[in-house]
Design a binder for these strands. Structure first.
Lengths: 224, 224
DNA sequence: CAGGCCACTGAACGCATGTTTAGCATGTTG
DNA sequence: CAACATGCTAAACATGCGTTCAGTGGCCTG
């Protein structure tokens, strides 16, 4: 038996611990933590199951550590996006589609990033991390609504808190049901093509309601 | 095989098999099938684990059977609601809030029914049953949009398929994120009080978009 | 009454899981 | 050099899982 110190083809500057964490992240995002075994994580990271528990004390501890890591990265993204001035950046190379959160995030992440999947899993999980994440997103949604209202683009409505919540969950819905939407529409709603198709329609509703003139994105005749 | 479709009232005239099925349904809806053990189902039904697999051949078979059962009941509800004429019934004792699907269903089910939870789980699961359910819901959403358009209440928009999909997922979002919304809003969005608070705001957006006059141009008959 | 079916139980089986343990190199340190 | 810490593996451990098996008692039929 050889003492294999370096069998990897690509030079990987990550520590073994980080590799395990990243593989756990990827697998947790794909199938959820409960459906992933320590042995699968170990195999994916190219190490023995014992080492996983050696670096992280237990699987559950690994899970919470990945949670923290993901939330930290997420918070970093969030701060990066809200850096300019205090309002949310809605402009960019090809923005002005919906200004939705999930859309913005996906554009600021590498294409194959497991982060969206992990956040989705967190949002749907009945955990403190999930609740905290949603609360954070809600706060962002409130700030966005405020910014839109200050810009005169939108009204705060009769119940701003509820309106912000509705905007948030409506946004997240496309994110949560992405696969199902892809199945019925025949197009990934969060791909470039999907956003190009979904965006205008959503924008039309947000602009003038369901009964606005079919094509004209102008002049809300908004009356029931 | 006897299967009497009784779920309410009276002492328990259900078959033991039906009791097991119902308890499995409840537990699956709560935690998802993978997080529920045969022993837990057996205990909940007051029988031995062996009997569970005696009546249903395996846990997986039990799961698919519960799937079928839930989808059948769901289809029954759906047909009941669309029975009058071919269009979707939007009126009722206290309707006219949003006419949303999840809302309608919740009103037509006993308060503690595990069915919504099960449907939620199905929608979020990556299974054929879940995909079929979503496809069915999408068809309903298309019909609703058609009905609304024929009634002149809404426009089909530039891309009716996308619009129907958006209306559907927006509706489902409140359903999927119910707990999280309850946490941030301090009120269950699908309770009577929650609907009374959410409905007008959503209706306002649907009526005139985000930038409509702050207070709805028309007072709808809400109830406390 | 005999015999077979039926719902049902208690105990066991085989297996996969998370975790523990003992040990092996290697590198650092006194 | 000796001693120890570190990164790591292979093997075993205990537990809980889905499932199987050998019965048992009641009910119907012949």
């Amino acid at each position: 038996m050889f003492s294999m110190l370096n069998m990897r083809s690509m030079p990987d500057d990550r520590t073994t611990r980080a590799v395990i964490r990243d593989e756990a992240l990827r697998l947790f995002a794909e199938r959820g933590p409960d459906a992933v075994t320590v042995r699968q994580i170990a195999t994916a990271a190219g190490v023995s199951p014992g080492l996983v528990v050696h670096h992280f004390r237990s699987k559950d501890n690994l899970r919470t550590e990945v949670d923290q890591y993901v939330l930290t990265v997420f918070e970093g993204l969030l701060n990066e996006l809200t850096a300019d001035g205090g309002t949310v950046a809605v402009d960019g190379p090809e923005a002005a589609t919906t200004g939705s959160l999930s859309e913005i995030f996906l554009r600021h992440l590498p294409v194959g990033s497991p982060l969206p999947g992990y956040l989705r899993m967190l949002l749907l999980s009945d955990t403190d991390a999930g609740r905290g994440l949603f609360r954070r997103l809600y706060a962002v949604s409130c700030k966005i609504l405020d910014a839109l209202a200050d810009a005169g683009v939108a009204s705060r409505g009769k119940d701003p808190q509820v309106r912000a919540a509705l905007l948030l969950v409506n946004d997240l819905s496309v994110f949560l049901l992405r696969d199902k939407l892809t199945a019925v529409l025949g197009i990934d709603p969060l791909s470039a093509a999907g956003l190009a198709r979904l965006g205008p329609e959503l924008l039309s509703i947000y602009a003038g309601g369901l009964n606005a003139a079919a094509v004209a994105p102008e002049a809300q005749g908004g009356q029931a």
